[in-house]
Amino acid sequence: DNLVIALHSYEPSHDGDLGFEKGEQLRILEQSGEWWKAQSLTTGQEGFIPFNFVAKA
């Protein structure tokens, strides 16, 4: 599955970004460039995340 774990917390800075906490698990929905579309397994919310803040779970 496309699961990743957050290496750092991220505060959203643009509409459509997904904020998350360090250690949170996310499911990657789309990989494109440096911003990936993801869904939080904690909150169920979707949005874009910086790819370098996460690692394969």
Rank of each mutant, 00 (worst) to 15 (best):
P50T: 08
F51Q: 11
S9Y: 07
I28S: 00
G19P: 09
W36P: 02
H8D: 08
S40P: 00
H8R: 15
L3F: 11
E34F: 15
E46F: 13
E11M: 13
G47D: 00
F51H: 13
G33M: 04
N2P: 06
E30N: 09
T42F: 09
D15P: 15
L3M: 10
I28Y: 01
W36S: 02
H14R: 15
P12I: 06
Q31H: 10
F53G: 03
L18D: 01
W36Y: 09
V54Q: 03
F53P: 02
S32Q: 12
Q25A: 10
G44K: 07
D1W: 14
G33E: 03
K22C: 09
G19M: 07
G23T: 02
E34G: 10
P12A: 13
L26R: 00
Q31Y: 14
S9Q: 07
Q45A: 11
G16F: 11
G16K: 08
Q39D: 00
F53H: 07
E11Y: 14
K22W: 04
S13H: 15
A55H: 08
E21D: 08
G33Y: 03
G16C: 13
S9P: 07
P50E: 03
E21F: 12
T43P: 00
F51Y: 13
A55F: 10
E24K: 01
Q25P: 10
K37W: 15
L3D: 04
L3T: 07
I49D: 03
K22D: 03
L3K: 05
Q45N: 10
S32Y: 13
T42E: 10
K22G: 03
L7Q: 06
D1M: 11
S9I: 04
V54S: 01
G23H: 05
E34I: 14
F51G: 12
G23S: 02
T43H: 03
S13M: 15
E24C: 06
Q25I: 15
N52E: 11
E24L: 03
Q25G: 07
Q39I: 13
N52A: 10
T43A: 01
D1K: 08
W35V: 08
V4K: 02
R27T: 05
G33Q: 04
K56M: 13
N2Y: 14
V4A: 08
Q39K: 12
D1N: 11
E34M: 14
A57Y: 14
E21P: 03
Q45M: 11
Q45E: 12
L18R: 01
G33T: 05
Q45P: 01
V54H: 02
H14W: 10
L41P: 04
Q45C: 10
Q25C: 15
E30P: 01
D1I: 11
W36L: 09
I49M: 02
E30R: 07
W35C: 12
I5R: 06
D1P: 09
I28P: 00
Q25K: 14
E34H: 14
H8P: 01
F53C: 13
T42K: 15
A6M: 06
K22S: 06
E30D: 12
E46P: 02
F48E: 03
A6C: 05
